[in-house]
């Protein structure tokens, strides 16, 4: 992917962020918001969408301006651009819902230091056509949102017995409180990574070993 420098838009432009280069599960980027705001599915979704907006908007602007930006100051310029869009989304969320704003707290502003965004601006947006940059950024954003939902969903389901605030198990369910607490964030993400690594290993082995019966109890 990285070698070809053509301007064709393919499904791959979008989908690589979703799966093959998923920012969270594969590239392990932007961990702070991933763990901090995923104690409920709705927070996870909001954070994912906000990050996607910043990714797409800054991708577009960086791609448009790239040829005018001298190399020496490019990182500074990108950061200013990113900070601008983060401030925009910060105000927007405040205007849309105060409750959501309070739940996400300072983590909206911390999108600025999410390495995914700067990384994409530097490695992709600055070298590609605006349309392509936007599509790729949208894919990355979707992948990020997907990962956040995977975490937020599991944590809310186990930790509170609900999903998007809807109670699923009834009053008899004894919640695994630890899941919505900080340790749960680490443990659930660790578990997801184990699962993905195991799947990867299994598909790499294909024929040789009989089945992926590795010690994978937890």
């Amino acid at each position: 992917m990285s070698r070809q420098r053509d301007d064709r838009l393919t499904w791959e432009t979008f989908s690589e962020g979703l799966w093959r280069e998923n920012p969270v599960f594969v590239m392990l980027l932007g961990m702070c918001p991933v763990l901090a705001v995923t104690n409920s599915a709705i927070n996870a979704l909001a954070m994912g969408l906000a990050t996607t907006f910043v990714l797409v908007a800054s991708g577009l602007l960086v791609s448009l301006l790239a040829r005018y930006i001298p190399r020496q100051v490019r990182i500074a310029t990108y950061i200013v651009i990113i900070a601008t869009f983060v401030t925009l989304i910060d105000y927007a969320i405040q205007a849309i819902s105060l409750d959501l704003y309070n739940a996400l707290g300072a983590f909206i502003q911390l999108i600025v230091v999410n390495c995914i965004i700067l990384g994409r601006a530097e490695a992709y947006a600055s070298r590609n056509r605006p349309l392509k940059a936007v599509v790729n950024a949208a894919g990355m954003g979707a992948g990020f949102t997907f990962a956040l939902l995977c975490l937020g969903g599991v944590r809310e389901l186990l930790g509170a017995g609900s999903l998007f605030g809807v109670n699923l198990f009834g009053p008899a369910f004894q919640p695994w409180v630890v899941m919505v607490l900080p340790p749960g964030g680490f443990l659930v993400l660790g578990a997801w990574l184990l699962l993905f690594d195991w799947l990867k290993q299994r598909s790499a082995e294909v024929a040789p070993s009989p089945r992926g019966e590795t010690a994978n109890g937890r």
Binding site: L28, P183, G184, G185, F186, L187, L189, G190, A191, L193, L194, D197
Partner: peptide, 9 residues
């Protein structure tokens, strides 16, 4: 990474 995260937990 999975191991590091579990330890972090």
């Amino acid at each position: 990474a999975a191991l590091s995260l579990m330890l972090g937990g």
